[in-house]
């Protein structure tokens, strides 16, 4: 997409679309980072800030929706332009979802901060960092139209799923050891699931990047490593 449109304002509109996605992506990343930071530091105030900022992502998503619909109606885009616009529409939706997950994590933080800490919170921190990195890298890939980089993010979802499965087991173990852990661990379980979903969305974004550049979805099946569906805890513990 190196050369320019004969109608310059079309280029400006496409550029504006990328700027909106970059802004949304940056905000979603920050929200996720702050939510995780608040969780680890048991900082209810910071968590409340995350919850309070979520509406900004919703507004940006609406702006992207409006912008794409108007471009579809007024420009009748074709080929790579059409794909870029469709990809942006879907990307905005994904980033809004990522923001929702960050908000959910922040909401649980307020509850968790009132309870005695449980050790698996640290593993949740690792899961959060991995999810953050995936979102950051896939956004860079999306904005640079870098299919190879997008593919690398897609591959890393395996790692995230494996970590999620092991965290799931760890939480079950703590709950069996001491029923007083159950409340905190259940909240962490939901946090973990939210982070695992962030990874899935990063994967979707990687596939969208491929579609926007190449015109087809990636052919290979995405890695499916989430074994937590089958996890059980034996009464004897580990």
């Amino acid at each position: 997409m190196g050369s320019h449109h004969i109608v310059k304002s079309f280029d400006d509109q496409l550029k504006r679309l990328d700027q909106l996605i970059a802004e949304m992506g940056g905000l979603a990343e920050t929200q996720l980072a702050n939510a995780m930071d608040a969780l680890i530091k048991r900082d209810s105030d910071k968590a409340a800030q995350v919850v309070g900022l979520d509406h900004r992502l919703d507004e940006l998503e609406q702006e992207v929706d409006h912008h794409t619909v108007s471009m579809l109606a007024l420009r009748q885009p074709m080929a790579s332009d059409l794909r870029q616009i469709i990809a942006a529409l879907k990307t905005a939706n994904i980033l809004e979802r990522v923001g929702d997950y960050a908000k959910n994590v922040a909401r649980r933080t307020a509850t968790l901060a009132e309870m005695p800490p449980v050790p698996p919170a640290l593993t949740v921190g690792r899961l959060g960092r991995l999810a953050q990195e995936m979102i950051k890298d896939v956004l860079d890939a999306y904005l640079a139209r870098d299919v190879d980089k997008a593919h690398m993010v897609r591959e890393r979802d395996k790692e995230l799923d494996a970590l999620h499965t092991s965290l799931f087991r760890e939480l079950l173990t703590y709950m069996m050891e001491d029923p007083r852990n159950i409340t905190a661990c259940t909240h962490l379980l939901f946090v973990a699931k939210n982070l695992e979903r962030v990874g899935d969305h990063a994967t979707n974004l990687a596939e969208l990047t491929h579609f926007a550049v190449k015109g087809v979805m990636p052919m290979t099946q995405r890695p499916q490593e989430d074994a937590s569906y089958f996890a059980v805890a034996e009464p004897q513990g580990k």
Binding site: S3, H4, H5, I6, V7, F10, P77, M78, A79, S80, D81, L82, R83, G215, V216
Partner: peptide, 18 residues
Amino acid sequence: IFTNPIDRRTQDYITGRF
């Protein structure tokens, strides 16, 4: 042709580029 043209010249023409 209109969603995923193979040739760069087709792409440039249908998307209105130089």
